[in-house]
Design a protein around this nucleic acid. Sequence first.
DNA 1: GTATAATATCTTGTTATGCAAGATAATTTG
DNA 2: CAAATTATCTTGCATAACAAGATATTATAC
Lengths: 110, 110
Amino acid sequence: MKRELKRGTIELVLLTLLEERERYGYEIVAAIEEGSGGRLEVRDGTLYPVLYRLEESGFVAPRWETPERGVPRKYYRITAEGKEELVRLEAEWREFAAAIDAILDSEGGQ
Amino acid sequence: MKRELKRGTIELVLLTLLEERERYGYEIVAAIEEGSGGRLEVRDGTLYPVLYRLEESGFVAPRWETPERGVPRKYYRITAEGKEELVRLEAEWREFAAAIDAILDSEGGQ
DNA sequence: GTATAATATCTTGTTATGCAAGATAATTTG
DNA sequence: CAAATTATCTTGCATAACAAGATATTATAC
């Protein structure tokens, strides 16, 4: 999947996944690939900066967890503001996709 | 509509509009807004560079027309290669949108 | 007839963000 | 102990949409 198409959608995807439950970054990379049926891939070098942006905006909140065995993990949960943002982003996505489809369907169908 | 979401879709939109018929840049700006039901807007400062990229790639071909009255217009038509590219871009868009929707629907629906 | 608006194309610089490529560190496995 | 795996983080690059202008012709208003 080309890079440019993804732009502006990763925050929506992240908030959607974090609304279901708390997750840590490395886990999210796999969740995106799985949840999209292998069609969408996001690198960790992409993911972490997005999480920081969301954190700065107050849409997610982190929590370190150091298990008895294993590498420390930084879990993120969605905040109340994050849920509101998710509603906005999803509406924006639906409207955008509808706009593109409107052009494709009206013109291509002739 | 936010800027980032549009990225990667404008070439698809342009080729779709040009597949229907020859058009000139200034006309396309209005056609996009109308064809999307007012949901999608593209500035002329965005449009022209996209047309040049498409022309360089051989996907569209320009033709100047100087009418008896009025400002000269540069009409673009889609080429055979452009039609192939359009098929690719549309498939890519459909798959991408399906990937996003798969994540939204599976997670949001619980 | 001159000024203003509308039509139309084009250019420059800014900005945002996804990603490659690495660095770091702990843990597990061979 | 060496190598692979898990996990987070950083730097620099590339791309493309846009704002803000420049330019030029034609149409309209005064």
